[in-house]
Simulated assay, not measured.
Amino acid sequence: MLAFLLRRLGLLVPTFIGVTIAAFFFIRLLPGDPIMLLAGERGISPERYAELASRFGFDRPLYEQYFVYLGNLFSGDLGVSFSTKRPVLTEFMTLFPATLELSICAMLFAIVLGLPAGVIAAVRRGKAADHAVMTTALVGYSMPIFWWALLLIIVFSGWLQWTPVSGRISLLYFFPPVTGFMLIDSLISGQKGAFQSAVQHLILPTIVLGTIPLAVIARQTRSAMLEVLGDDYIRTPGPRGCRPSASSACMPCATH
């Protein structure tokens, strides 16, 4: 076990270095100047440009910038957002509960629907229910998630107007965040209708994010169920088990 963990940790280091190199150099290949982006539409003087480039390290060679970036990464300094002028780590921690909340809801949606669908498909193997579940799972797994999201927005938010288009809660409600999870904060806020609004805003993102996991869970559940149903200890009790009598009572057979 220790050797296995050491091998995994040994693979983690080059993987981490490769990801940081790819992220760093791909960002540098993008068009645009970060200093000019920071300056905005008003422009900037050459002296001020040189000062900002020196402050952020853009006047150094590219390899030196990478090692500075790596050192800041290990120290927890992810830099400052050019749009909000706040630390990136602060922005991340502010929005991370929303991501976690959506991920939990999507996984619950996938599990609650995927497990029964897989079981039904396995029990009704080769029948209409099986074909319907597997076809739906294949379509759900294959469709581009961004196209699926736009389609749901057009149908349910545009045509039917059942769900909101974007956001986490209606602008009619305001309360200070306590946990960062909108469902919990809206529930403990005591404002009438706030929790319902938060749920309505989560419906479409949950369906979109949970569609692919739902399809995977349904297919894997069906495969696992078919494998178990084909085992000897499942098939044997049928021909060798109890035979119900006319009174529906279980009569002992010779094998018991």
Rank of each mutant, 00 (worst) to 15 (best):
C242F: 10
A98D: 09
Q65E: 04
L172N: 14
S75G: 07
P205R: 01
E51L: 08
F92C: 11
L52A: 03
Y233T: 12
A3H: 01
W147L: 10
L152A: 06
A218V: 03
P97G: 06
G238R: 12
L2V: 11
L187A: 15
V155K: 01
R168D: 12
L113G: 11
F96Y: 14
T99K: 11
L209N: 00
M251A: 14
L9I: 09
P237R: 12
F181R: 08
S245K: 11
R219P: 03
G79R: 10
G140F: 01
V112A: 04
F16V: 15
G230Y: 07
L102F: 06
Q220P: 00
D77I: 10
L89D: 11
H256A: 15
L150E: 13
G10Y: 03
D231G: 13
G32H: 02
W162C: 06
F92S: 07
A122G: 14
L152F: 11
A106F: 06
A215I: 03
V216D: 04
V80A: 03
S81L: 10
R235C: 04
M1S: 11
M225V: 02
P176W: 10
I234C: 12
I104M: 14
S248V: 09
K127C: 00
A254E: 10
L62Q: 05
M93G: 02
V199T: 13
Y141S: 09
I234L: 14
T255G: 05
P239K: 07
A53W: 12
P116A: 05
A22K: 04
A53P: 03
P34F: 00
F24A: 01
G71D: 01
I27P: 00
F26A: 10
H131R: 15
L30F: 09
L38P: 02
F74E: 09
V199E: 12
S197N: 12
E64Q: 12
A128N: 02
I207V: 15
A137F: 08
P237W: 10
T94P: 00
V139W: 01
A117D: 03
S189C: 06
